[in-house]
C-alpha cells in the first residue's frame, strides 16, 4: 500500500542548500583572498652564488630560470637518480623517490642513501616538507603536484627518459648546468664518451652480430623491448642485434612464448633476481619445457644482469652494455 506520508520526518532542504552555498562561498573566498604570487627573496637571505641567476635550456625547447645555486634538490624521477648522486654531494639532495632504492644504482649500493629520506607519492604536501629549491621529475609526474609547486615559486624541471645512447652525454651536461657542477659533469661525460667509443670500436670489429632478445617474465606473460628503447640501444652498442627490433617491433611490448620460439635468438638477456643469481625470468626460461629447443637455452647463452641495469634509463645503461659485450669476447 502506498503511503503519502514519508516514513520519517525530513531535513529541511533549504538548510542543506544554505550550507552548500556558504561552503562554496567560503571556498571561493579562501582561494581568492591570499596573494598567490611566488615568494620574493627574504631580507637577510644570502646573495646568489656566482653565475646565478642563470637560464638553462631544456631538451623540449623550454627554459628554466634558476635564481640561485640549488641547495635542496628533490629527485622524483628514478632515471635521474644515478646522475644526481654522481654530480651532487648527498647533502644537496634532500629526498629521492622511493623507487630509486630498487631501480637505480642504489639497488647495488644501498649504503649511499642508507637512512636518508625517500618518498612514495609525488604529492605537493610531501614534497613541500623537504623545502626544495629544485625538483626533478618526469614529464608525466603528477600534473597537479607540479602545478602546485610551481605556483609556490619552486623550480620543477621535467625531463623525459633518454631513448638513445647519444642523449646520455648531453643529459649529464644539462644536469651539471642545473646543479652548478659543470666540471664534475664534464669529467663524467668524458669518461662515458670514452666507454661508449670503446664499445662501438669493439662492436665494429666483430664479423657477426649475434641475435639477442631482452626478455623478462614475472608471471605468465613475457615482455621484451624493441627499437626506440634504451635497452635496445645498449644491445646494439654491445655488438648484438636485437632480434625483436629486427622484425620491426618498437617499444616495450608483450612477447608470447610462440613468438620467442619463432625468433629463436642466439642469446637471451634476462633480469636476475635481487641479490641472487637465478631470477624468475631466468629460471622460467631455463626450466620451461616449452622452451627446451630454444637455441640460447641449448647453448647456455642466457645472460642475467641486475634488474636495475635491465630497466635503467640512466647513463648506467652503458654498464649494462659492457656486461653484455664481455660475453662476446
Amino acid at each position: 500500500m502506498i503511503s503519502l506520508q514519508p516514513e520519517s520526518r525530513s531535513i529541511r532542504p533549504a538548510a542543506a542548500r544554505w550550507v552548500c552555498t556558504v561552503l562554496l562561498a567560503l571556498c571561493a573566498g579562501l582561494a581568492g583572498c591570499r596573494d598567490r604570487s611566488p615568494p620574493t627573496p627574504r631580507p637577510g637571505a644570502a646573495p646568489p652564488a656566482a653565475g646565478f641567476p642563470r637560464t638553462v635550456a631544456l631538451p623540449d625547447g623550454s627554459e628554466v630560470e634558476l635564481a640561485d645555486r640549488p641547495r635542496r634538490v628533490v629527485v622524483a624521477n628514478t632515471a635521474l637518480v644515478d646522475a644526481s648522486l654522481e654530480l651532487l654531494a648527498t647533502d644537496r639532495i634532500v629526498a629521492l623517490c622511493d623507487q630509486a632504492r630498487t631501480w637505480s644504482s642504489l639497488a647495488a649500493h644501498p649504503e649511499i642513501w642508507a637512512g636518508r629520506p625517500t618518498f612514495r607519492h609525488f604529492d605537493a604536501e610531501t614534497i613541500l616538507a623537504y623545502s626544495p629549491d629544485l625538483v626533478l621529475c618526469s614529464p608525466f609526474s603528477q600534473l597537479e603536484t607540479v602545478h602546485v609547486l610551481r605556483g609556490l615559486g619552486i623550480q620543477v624541471v621535467k625531463l623525459a627518459d633518454p631513448t638513445t645512447i647519444d642523449e646520455l652525454g648531453p643529459r649529464l651536461t644539462l644536469l651539471g648546468r642545473l646543479f652548478d657542477t659543470e666540471e664534475r659533469a664534464a669529467e663524467l661525460r668524458q669518461d662515458l664518451d670514452a666507454r661508449i667509443a670503446a664499445l662501438r670500436t669493439r662492436a665494429a670489429s666483430r664479423e657477426h652480430r649475434p641475435s639477442l632478445v631482452a626478455y623478462s617474465r614475472l608471471g605468465e606473460e613475457g615482455w621484451t623491448m624493441g627499437s626506440g628503447t634504451l635497452i635496445h640501444a645498449a644491445i646494439e652498442l654491445a655488438g648484438f642485434e636485437n632480434a625483436v627490433a629486427a622484425v620491426g617491433r618498437e617499444g616495450a611490448r608483450r612477447l608470447p612464448l610462440e613468438d620467442l620460439l619463432a625468433l629463436d635468438p642466439e642469446w637471451l638477456l634476462v633480469p636476475a633476481a635481487f641479490g641472487e643469481e637465478d631470477g624468475l625470468s631466468q629460471s622460467s626460461v631455463q626450466r620451461d619445457p616449452r622452451l627446451a629447443r630454444l637455441r640460447a637455452r641449448r647453448n647456455d647463452r642466457i645472460v642475467a644482469i641486475h634488474p636495475w641495469l635491465f630497466s635503467t634509463t640512466s647513463h648506467e645503461i652503458v654498464t649494462a652494455a659492457e656486461q653484455l659485450a664481455v660475453r662476446l669476447d
Binding site: 582561494a31 607519492h121 605537493a124 604536501e125 603528477q142 597537479e144 603536484t145 602546485v148
Partner: peptide
C-alpha cells in the same frame, strides 16, 4: 593528493 582550490 595535491588538490587545489579549483578542485574544491
Amino acid at each position: 593528493y595535491s588538490r587545489q582550490a579549483w578542485h574544491a
